[in-house]
């Protein structure tokens, strides 16, 4: 596998994720784009670990840590989302002003 191709694909995923994270008005879609960003970072870790550090496997271990952090984030995100939805009946990002009550 060519190294540059995978790096370009992960750069593409990263920029798509940032675009969706900034412009999406639905909060669930913002969470999905955040997952895309974390996956792009993970792809870079695994690919560099395969090409440069194939004996030590430290990139693999670090990507496992990133996956665990993403699992924690994906547990917190829908919990906050369901709490906001219960209070506001909406999941639009620009209407979530719960703190000014």
């Amino acid at each position: 596998m060519m190294l540059e191709h995978v790096l370009i694909i992960s750069a593409y995923l990263f920029s798509i994720g940032i675009y969706g994270l900034i412009t999406s008005r639905n909060m669930v879609r913002a969470l999905m784009c955040l997952e895309l960003i974390l996956n792009a970072v993970n792809m870079n870790f695994v690919t560099f670990s395969d090409f440069f550090d194939s004996r030590q496997l430290k990139g693999n271990i670090f990507s496992i840590f990133v996956i665990a952090i993403a699992a924690a984030e994906a547990a917190i995100g829908p919990a906050i989302l369901s709490s906001i939805y219960r209070n506001r009946k909406s999941t639009r990002i620009n209407q979530s002003n719960l703190l000014n009550k």
Partner: peptide, 17 residues
């Protein structure tokens, strides 16, 4: 983790609204 847990949780959050 991603497909089995996170994606299922996101689909649950979509179906919740």
């Amino acid at each position: 983790i991603y497909v089995g847990a996170i994606n299922v949780l996101i689909i649950f959050a979509v179906m919740f609204m």
